[in-house]
Amino acid sequence: MGRHIENHQPVIIRNLMVWLILLLSLLTLLAPFSVHAEYGDVVFNKRAEKAGVRPVIFPHWFHRIRYKCNVCHSEIGFKMRAGANDIFMANIKNGKFCGACHNNQIAWGAENCHLCHSGLPGLNSGIRGGDTTAGPGKW
């Protein structure tokens, strides 16, 4: 009888191990759910930090909720290529580029420096796709 139990114990443990492995596999399968969204943010830092302000972070998601693509990429004239638009603060204050809306009429004005110049020091200019796409041209 004693031998009978001895023979069974390891089998139970082995089976439990199998279930444990299955359970862990299941949890591993669920792991991809913890990905983060990619925002398509554009960093402008060609001149910002040299001029003593934080880099500009432009959020596509915020703007496309409120405006269709053609408003900025046709009416205002932003080229659809990060880095292709040479933007000076003087242009913005004269109603060009961001200043077409950020004029205290459509959106808050350009004197609110910190709202755009909100980036981490040292960021490189360009569009950010994130870890799934790495952004255009980064494959």
């Binding site: 969204a37 925002y39 943010d41 960093v43 934080r54 972070i57 959020p59 998601w61 915020f62 910190h114 709202l115 110049h117 909100s118 980036g119 981490l120 020091p121 960021l123 950010r128």
Partner: peptide, 17 residues
């Protein structure tokens, strides 16, 4: 998001994604 400066004054004013 590794883009915005957490120490910047804008973070409590900008809409969260």
């Amino acid at each position: 998001d590794e883009l915005h400066d957490p120490a910047g004054p804008a973070l409590n004013q900008l809409q969260s994604p």
